[in-house]
């Protein structure tokens, strides 16, 4: 083990990896928030709660139906996406044309309901979720020990993020989506079913959050409040990155996760607030956010 600045490389790279994983989750969540905001003009406060529901869905599938990690990786996000689409159709849809703050308040209320129900059922304590068989163990890289699952989580979320970017920026479906974001009336005039597109977008966004939840389940314990504090950090990430660009959201997510991980090594007292401090600095220097368009 080689010590670096008085800190073992083991600890340094271990935290860096954990930071990278958190960054991946920030990226997936802020990506979902950005896509939803683009189409629905709503900041989805329930995003953190639905991330938690994703993790719990995986846990339910395993505990009650003996359905393992790999099917859960698809089933849980699909289930949450369906749930999200029901919410969009029954509630969020009625808020079209109202002030932004009502969307924020409604989804905040939904987050309280969802978190409250899970908290009453499971208390504040966490449920452990076992690592999938194929991803147990790890590799010794010489300067650090790399657990296979953590490597998988980072690589997989990066792929999901890049896939989303590709879908939105490079495919026909993506161009329709961007058109509907830019000008819904005109897009409808071209015969595209915009309301359905909006519902699907919301489902996709919360599905991404649930997917992050399933990925997080074996790393962190599955807790009812696992998304509550998380979403506030994600909001700060969104303020820093700006919701204007997809790659910006991904970049900001990963970058801040890494910074947070490094802070845990060098100055652990500030690890909780470093993202907020960066947010303040960005607001002072470039109020529109690093990659943002002016709203």
């Amino acid at each position: 083990m080689i010590p670096l600045l008085g800190i073992s490389t083991q600890a340094l790279f271990g935290q860096l990896l954990l930071g990278l994983i958190n960054g991946a989750f920030y990226a997936m969540l802020s990506l979902g928030l950005a896509v939803i905001f683009g189409m629905l003009n709503i900041v989805n406060f329930a995003h953190g709660a639905l991330y938690m529901v994703g993790a719990f869905a995986a846990w339910f599938l395993l505990t009650y139906f003996h359905i393992g990690y790999w099917p859960a990786l698809i089933l849980a996000p699909l289930g949450v996406a369906l749930f999200g689409m029901v919410i969009e159709r029954t509630m969020l849809k009625r808020l079209a044309g109202l002030d932004h703050i009502y969307g924020l308040l409604l989804t905040f209320g939904l987050a309280l309901i969802i978190q409250g129900v899970f908290q009453n059922q499971f208390g504040a304590s966490g449920q452990p979720y076992p690592l999938p068989e194929q991803l147990k163990g790890g590799t010794n890289l010489g300067f650090m020990y790399l657990p296979t699952y953590r490597a998988w989580a980072v690589v997989f979320s990066l792929c999901v993020c890049l896939f989303t970017w590709f879908m939105i920026e490079k495919t026909r479906l993506g161009s329709v989506l961007r058109a509907a974001t830019e000008n819904p009336e005109l897009t409808r005039a071209f015969g595209i079913n915009v309301p359905r597109l909006i519902t699907l977008t919301y489902g996709f966004g919360v599905g991404l959050a649930a997917l992050a939840g399933v990925l997080a389940a074996p790393i962190y314990q599955v807790r009812p409040l696992m998304g509550a504090d998380f979403i506030i950090v994600v909001f700060a990430v969104v303020v820093i990155g700006g919701m204007g660009s997809i790659l910006g959201a991904i970049g900001a997510g990963f970058m801040l996760g890494i910074v947070e991980g490094l802070t845990k090594v060098f100055y652990p007292q500030a690890a909780n607030i470093v993202v907020f401090v960066i947010m303040v600095a960005v607001l002072l220097v470039k109020p529109t956010g690093l990659f943002g368009k002016k709203l």
Partner: peptide, 20 residues
Amino acid sequence: LSIRRQGIYFSMITLALAQM
């Protein structure tokens, strides 16, 4: 700090500052 942005960004900034 927070009035440097408007609308929902304002809300998110105040939330983040309070969390800090």
